[in-house]
Design a protein around this nucleic acid. Sequence first.
DNA 1: CAGCATCCGCTTTGATACTG
DNA 2: CAGTATCAAAGCGGATGCTG
Lengths: 237, 237
Amino acid sequence: MREKSKHLDLKLQLNYDGGVRSYGQHCSLAKALDVVGDRWSLLIIRELIARGACRYTDLREGLPGIATNMLADRLRDLEQAGIVSREDAPPPVARPLFRLTPRGEELRGVVRELTRWGLPLIGDSIDGEAFRGHWLAAAALLLLKDNAPDAAPVAIEVRAGEEPMLIVTAGGALQARPGPGVNPDAIISGTPRLTMGLLTGMLDIERAQALGLEISGDASAIERIRTPLPLVGAGAS
Amino acid sequence: MREKSKHLDLKLQLNYDGGVRSYGQHCSLAKALDVVGDRWSLLIIRELIARGACRYTDLREGLPGIATNMLADRLRDLEQAGIVSREDAPPPVARPLFRLTPRGEELRGVVRELTRWGLPLIGDSIDGEAFRGHWLAAAALLLLKDNAPDAAPVAIEVRAGEEPMLIVTAGGALQARPGPGVNPDAIISGTPRLTMGLLTGMLDIERAQALGLEISGDASAIERIRTPLPLVGAGAS
DNA sequence: CAGCATCCGCTTTGATACTG
DNA sequence: CAGTATCAAAGCGGATGCTG
């Protein structure tokens, strides 16, 4: 994968191979992994799900640990695969914007299932790990739902890392974005693990509080977006 | 990743690093990818979903292109991660058996979503690609459902590659296994792409036949397990 | 600076050969 | 059969350099 441009290797024009390392299997799963199975690819897609259109630097900031050439390479690959679009800004000021194409948006199901499966792997402490508030926002956005779509909207502020995050109900769906809220109905403060533990039904409010989660405001607002996850994928098939 | 056991490298006991190359991000998706994001991992899990318990050689046969050390490494990693269990057989005859643990079974949702997303990437012809009938069986098993769980069971034989495959309804769920059926209610013959196109609702029977799919027997049996997939993951969230 | 491209050293992967 | 050992070739991460 990735172009070669080795010394004395001028071959013919367009010798950049378009970068496809394939499993070579006539199988839907293998084909999907050919496209999004490379290191960093799905994390880039997480960034674009969580934050919408991003500039290069935004992406790099949300992907601590990535090498800059990796990011450039992957963006090229994903663009070529029709998953990401690059919006080259007009001359005067702006910077190129990257966003998901409709085909890229269809990866939400994939990211949702991986996020759900990975929840138990989140540890209590943010040892030497990196953390960004919008990662939590993405998980909430993907995994939670509004249990009372017809009631008046509520907003819940979550304080897990450095930057707070706001979850709001909006016409039956949920939206989540980084940043504080104005007069939120409830505020939850604690580790990402405890926060998601509460919201995904693995902990009830009492147990979460006993473990150190701080909750203020209207607890019913929390119940409204609490979404117990089916523990085993054994439900269907 | 992977143990070293280099020459003259005796360090202290337990110096095998347990093999974890981590993104180092306090994020559920990143944690999941730390565990199943390596090359070949999810394809090994596909094999175990499709065929149940497997011996080493079965796995290698179902994973054309994998290097034998890769398979050994990944099986060790997956075992250590609690996803695969190795059943070391008693001395006399048998061979070690690998199977998914309950935690590994929970990856069905992940594999299902990737398989679904990858469906459009399957081409018409099996160029120089490898193909195994049970890959198609896995896709059917994961993506299709029985639309009439209370009716008498039906069996449909699918002939896509070398080996035929049988899809049977069983108490509301579907089962799929390689091999021919005895007096199946219907028989479908054609490329994997056309077959899955029909069964996942992207093609109707007439169109599929026009494109070369051969259908014999009771068409209503096919309708019974035909499961149109939501085209965009835009439904929820 | 933002947005890459290049180089460099280390790790992972892949093909082959070998062993209990 | 079920792996290990070996080694070459990619892939990856970090640093740095170039260009608007």
